Amino acid sequence: MSRSTGGVMGKGAISAGAVAVLMLAAGCKAAAIDTDGGRPSASGEGGADDKPGASAPVTPAPDPTPGRTEPSRTPGPSRPAERTGPATPTVPPKTLLARGARGGQVRELQARLRQVAWFQQNPTGTYGPATAGAVKGFQGKRGLPRTGTVDTVTWQRLRAMTREPTRLELYAGGGIPPAKPDPRCLTGRVLCIAKSSRTLTWMVDGKAVSTMDVRFGAQYTPTREGTFSVYWKSRHHVSTLFHTAMPYAMFFSGGQAVHYSSDFAARGYNGASHGCVNVRDEKKIAKLFGEVRKGDKVVVYK
């Protein structure tokens, strides 16, 4: 008997399980099965809490992708509509300097080109063939059009590669505007010598008569500063110490004199004197030598 009963019970259990499996496969929740073999309630939810007329709770739809959680979406700002109008035209570079130009900006251009070894001469302030050739070389090396004229793009590139030229760099070949006269130069007959501008200005009663480029002594043989007077003039002087010619010499402090220097004329500021004030323009100092008198004042200042 027990074996037969077990067989009957086994068939009942299999039937109930099969029903549940079929319902789950259909996507439905299995109805509650009364353990006493009764029918499920009409609502589909068995148990004592089932009340007539009560609406059945809504079952959420299963996630189409098991194990995946749909991220929450936070609405962001709306993207503005793209404009499809005509593109802004490119502004062509503006020409700043070209051949024939003169002035301070040309001198600065030449000094900057000299810093990057494209201009081998001293700045002159005149935009000639040598300057145009240097600009072409600089442009070609940087992949810019080789026009030989300086436009805004070329100038900005050159400025980015160089520093602000000093006054002495701008006037490496001379021609610096004379410095403001020292007050001691404003009365009488004076050789007014300014180290800052490397100029000698011959002044009479506060008025400049002529100005010329000069150079001074080296670090260990500096030109003395102060107020002096011309005590000796020697037209064809030769140094007894260095055995070098000192034409148009006007001595003002010991062995230091104002005189013409052929070395200064040839080498410029690459050289220096042994303390004297060298003049490179022979014509100017020859005229000055004829005008200066023994006893005239000499002022050397920074």
Rank of each mutant, 00 (worst) to 15 (best):
V238A: 00
E108T: 13
G38Q: 00
W202H: 06
V8E: 07
G271N: 06
T244I: 04
W202P: 01
G47T: 04
R114W: 02
A20S: 10
A56Q: 10
R99L: 10
G173H: 05
V299N: 03
T149I: 11
R184S: 14
C185W: 10
A101G: 11
R73E: 07
Q219E: 14
G76M: 06
P52W: 01
G268A: 04
A26L: 11
S197L: 02
D49G: 12
D49A: 13
A249M: 01
W202G: 01
D36H: 15
Y260A: 02
A160H: 00
A194S: 14
A20M: 10
P123I: 06
A194K: 04
L168N: 14
D205S: 15
L170W: 04
T124Q: 03
S229K: 05
C185M: 07
H274V: 01
A130M: 03
G6I: 14
E108D: 01
K294A: 02
V106A: 03
I33C: 02
Y127I: 10
L191V: 03
F251N: 00
A266Q: 14
H237Q: 07
I33P: 04
P178L: 07
P77H: 07
G53F: 10
D34F: 03
A117P: 02
A42K: 09
S55R: 13
K297L: 07
A111C: 03
G7Q: 15
V8T: 08
A48Y: 11
D49K: 12
H274C: 05
D182N: 15
P222L: 06
T154H: 03
G37T: 01
Y260H: 11
G100C: 02
A54D: 13
G268V: 01
A48V: 15
M250K: 03
S253Q: 14
D151W: 07
G173I: 09
Q256R: 09
L144Q: 12
P181A: 09
L241I: 10
L158N: 08
S234Y: 15
G37K: 05
D263T: 08
T124G: 05
G38A: 02
K302M: 01
K51S: 10
F251D: 02
Q105F: 06
A245Y: 13
I14Q: 08
R163C: 07
A208H: 08
A266N: 08
T211R: 06
T244S: 11
A81Q: 07
S273D: 03
G37H: 01
G10F: 00
A56D: 11
A87P: 12
Y301W: 11
D34R: 10
G143A: 02
T162M: 08
G140A: 13
A18K: 15
M161Y: 00
S72Y: 06
G17M: 07
P86S: 07
R142C: 00
G46T: 08
Y269R: 14
K283L: 10
T244Y: 06
A32I: 11
R68D: 03
R99N: 05
G104W: 08
